[in-house]
């Protein structure tokens, strides 16, 4: 029995569900690497449909990789096909049709709530890969997995930096982190602060700070992109964004085992000299998307992992 048939929002999961998925991801990580051609055919004969109504390379490829590592097949809707559908057919009809072609659907769509609506109409499991400014739960789970593997999750001290206002990644992550007794610091320009009404809804040890104040204390530094479109003019953007750049100099004051994360793609908020330091975890973080999505795919399709031997 699956713990959940659809994965729409991280808030639909309990702490126990989250830990369960992270555990399963760890069991599957060996196979995610494809070392020595080792394969695990848990989803052999199954088909995953990728429905991306918005461009995304990483998330889509990472799902595709996860499905293929599990011995399954993937069918994709191209961006071009998506745009012609958006003009003609309703999302409801698309879902009704595609759910007859596949054993699970991954959807990214610009409207908030679209994945929850899709789940109501689909005859097969639906996984939300981003619904506008809404939810992106598989990103949150891979972030939590990264923190758990590369640092510690329970009781960690974590700083979130950059665009805290519009970033759905940050919003979902904060909600999940509060389940693990973490201390959270918020570092952002005034214009991109975490919205007040969001803060009203979360309980936890959350406070604003500057990077200088907390750099020597934190276990995790989670950096997000500050987008140009959020600012009235180019100059304002450059002024603000320029003061939220991480380089190896500022990291020299950090704990030895601080990890720096980023959902990628980055622009210039982490300078490339950081890549060479032990703190840089973001590429590993991107890889962890594969085992985490493998675990999620198995879960929604009701395939037991109990028999999987690690290593």
């Amino acid at each position: 029995m699956s713990r959940f048939k659809h994965l729409i929002s991280i808030e639909d999961l309990t702490k126990d569900d989250i830990l369960y998925i992270l555990q399963k991801a760890e069991e599957l990580e060996f196979y995610a690497k494809g070392t020595k051609g080792d394969k695990i055919n848990l989803l052999e004969g199954k088909i995953l449909a990728n429905l991306f109504f918005e461009p995304s390379t990483r998330t889509r490829m990472s799902f595709e990789s996860a499905m293929k590592r599990l011995g399954g097949d993937v069918i994709n809707m191209t961006a071009q096909e998506a745009s012609s559908i958006v003009k003609g057919e309703t999302l409801a009809d698309t879902i009704r049709v595609v759910s007859e072609y596949a054993d699970a659907i991954v959807i990214r769509h610009p409207l908030e709530g679209s994945a929850r609506f899709a789940a109501e109409l689909s005859s097969v499991p639906v996984i939300n890969a981003g619904d506008g400014a809404g939810q992106h739960p598989t990103q949150t789970l891979l972030d939590l997995y990264t923190i758990k593997k590369e640092s510690r999750l329970e009781g960690a001290t974590i700083a979130l930096m950059g665009d805290l206002k519009y970033s759905r990644t940050v919003h979902s992550l904060i909600k999940a982190l509060t389940l693990f007794n973490t201390r959270i610091y918020l570092i952002s320009p005034d214009a991109l602060k975490l919205p007040e009404d969001f803060l009203e809804d979360v309980k936890g040890d959350i406070s604003e700070a500057t990077l200088d104040e907390v750099i020597s204390e934190i276990d995790v530094l989670y950096v997000t992109r500050i987008q140009k479109e959020r600012f009235p003019d180019e100059e304002e953007y450059r002024k603000v964004a320029g003061s939220y750049i991480i380089n190896s100099e500022i990291l020299s004051k950090a704990k030895k085992d601080l990890i720096v994360m980023h959902p990628l793609p980055r622009v210039n908020e982490i300078s490339s000299d950081v890549d060479l330091t032990r703190h840089a975890i973001y590429f590993k973080q991107a890889f962890y998307g594969v085992p985490v999505r493998m675990a999620i795919l198995c879960e929604v399709m009701g395939v037991a992992l109990g028999e999987v031997k690690v290593g």
Partner: peptide
């Protein structure tokens, strides 16, 4: 009130 919400999509049966 969220104009970007699927429940406000004109042609969807929602």
């Amino acid at each position: 009130p969220n104009s970007n919400c699927i429940s406000n999509a004109e042609r969807e049966p929602i």
